[in-house]
Design a protein around this nucleic acid. Structure first.
Lengths: 109, 109
DNA sequence: TGTTTTAGTTACCATTTGGTTACCGCTTTT
DNA sequence: AAAAGCGGTAACCAAATGGTAACTAAAACA
C-alpha cells in the first residue's frame, strides 16, 4: 500500500523519487536551475561525474520531461540543456528539502 | 559545487536525500507516519521488501535519528518502531513531493 | 513431544548502478 | 601534417544494492 496499491497504482512520493532520486539527478537539476548549460559546462560544475553517467542521466531527465536538449549543427558540436517548465516546477520541493537539510544536518555543532 | 564545495561542505539537498533516498526509506517513513508499528507489521504493509533489507533500512533510519526502536524483553520478541520528532519534521517535504507527484505523474490521462 | 511464533542473523547470489579507458567524427588552429 | 576541441559511444569492470534460504532463542500451545 505504500509503493503500490493492490490496483498497481503507485504512491506519488515513490513515483516522484524515481524521477529525481539517484546519485546525480538532483545535482544536475540544481545546476540547470541557474540557467541553460552546455554538456561540458555541466560536467565541469559537477565534479566526479563521468561523461558516460552524465549522458545517461541527462537522457533520463529528458525522457521524463524535466529537461530539454537542444543540439546545434555546428563543428565542433554544441548541445545545450535547460529545465523545462515541469523541471522548474520542482523547485518548491528542492526548497523544502534544502531548508530541512540546512536546519537539521548542516547546522549541527 | 553541487554535492560538495571545495571546502568539502555538502549541499543540503544532497545531504538530505542521502537520509531519505533509496528504494525503501520513504515507504518505511510513510508507513510509520501512521503510528508506531512492530517489525512484522511494517513488513506486511510494505510488500516485496525482504526482512534482511527491512532490518538494514531500519538500522540506517535509527542511526540517522529519524526513527526510534523500542525492544521488549519478551518471548516471542517484540520490537516497536516509531518516528522521532526529527522524523516527523520531514512531513512538509513529503507533502510537497506527494502534491507534485499527484499533479504531474499520477494525474496523467 | 513437536510445532508455532517473532525479530532477527548468516552465507551466498543476482541485479543495478556507477566508473574507466579508449575511441569517433569533423572542422579549425598550429 | 598534426593536434585540439566537443559531445558523445563501446567495451569492459567494480561496487552497491537487493534478494533467498536456512538458522537462532525461549515460551506457548496441542
Amino acid at each position: 500500500m505504500v509503493t503500490k496499491t493492490t490496483e498497481n497504482t503507485k504512491c506519488p512520493v515513490a513515483a516522484t523519487l524515481e524521477l529525481i532520486g539517484g546519485r546525480w539527478k538532483t545535482p544536475i537539476l540544481y545546476c540547470l536551475a541557474f540557467g541553460t548549460k552546455r554538456f561540458g559546462e555541466i560536467a565541469v560544475r559537477i565534479p566526479n561525474i563521468s561523461r558516460k553517467v552524465l549522458t545517461e542521466q541527462l537522457k533520463d531527465l529528458e525522457k521524463d520531461g524535466l529537461i530539454s536538449r537542444k543540439q546545434y549543427k555546428e563543428i565542433p558540436p554544441r548541445v545545450e540543456y535547460s529545465l523545462t517548465d515541469l523541471g522548474k516546477s520542482l523547485s518548491p520541493i528542492f526548497d523544502e528539502i534544502a531548508a530541512w537539510g540546512n536546519q537539521n544536518i548542516l547546522a549541527k555543532p
